[in-house]
Nucleic acid binder design. Structure first.
Lengths: 112, 112
DNA sequence: ATATATACTTAGTAATACTAAGTATATAAA
DNA sequence: TTTATATACTTAGTATTACTAAGTATATAT
């Protein structure tokens, strides 16, 4: 039941978190899911059906670029995503928005 | 442009903020819009078309109840909303979820 | 008498994340 | 060898949500 609210609250920050992970360097989808889950201590556990549409959207908007890995040592082909300058710039704006909103929420919710 | 992301981030916390305002006592729609705008320093400026559907939803879920004011001193009829026990309980869960998510975001975003 | 502020309602739209499936490859187990 | 599992990406369909943009109605100020 409160699941529903939790999901809604997570919406909107996912794009920002994915971008943030990509500031560390190029990464592929599955890796992003794993790192997001680990670094958030299981709070953000995305399914593929959630992450990939996000990546496609970020790519459409020019915030990331993708490149298929040259099939080196017979591994499963991977599509690597990397930040663009626009992505870096937008990420800063996203975080500024997030801070504003989070501060607004905290001041309204007070000390619970 | 970053407008879009800001909007998405605000989604999901609106129900919680409306409920929080109602912990102070019964309030009507227009009043909630004004208080939310003031107390959040303009960050959360809802239009009627945004707030009322939220109130209807909260009512459907049994988190608030509504009562039309008895038309006392010839004022415009007002529909007052008040918290239910279920609303108070759910609000606590919502805030717990919010804290988890906000902490997760901060730890991932690091010190910007 | 008219304009403005208050107050609530509703239809239609866009955006987002989810569920649930599918395809394909590499590696481990049987 | 065959099967199962983990990796990796894709897509269709659905539900939820907030928004825009109207509309209705009343009280008060001009």
């Amino acid at each position: 039941m409160q699941e529903k609210y939790e999901r809604q609250m997570k919406k909107g920050v996912l794009d920002m978190l994915v971008l943030q992970l990509l500031t560390e360097g190029r990464k592929y989808g599955y890796q992003l899911i794993a790192e997001l889950r680990e670094k958030s201590e299981e709070i953000f556990s995305l399914k593929e059906g959630t992450l990939y549409p996000i990546l496609y959207r970020l790519e459409d908007e020019g915030l990331v670029e993708s490149r298929w890995s040259e099939p080196e040592n017979r591994q499963i082909p991977r599509k690597y995503y990397l930040m663009t300058d626009k992505g870096r710039h937008t990420l800063k704006e996203m975080y500024r928005s997030w801070r504003q909103i989070a501060d607004g929420v905290e001041s309204l919710m007070g000390r619970q």
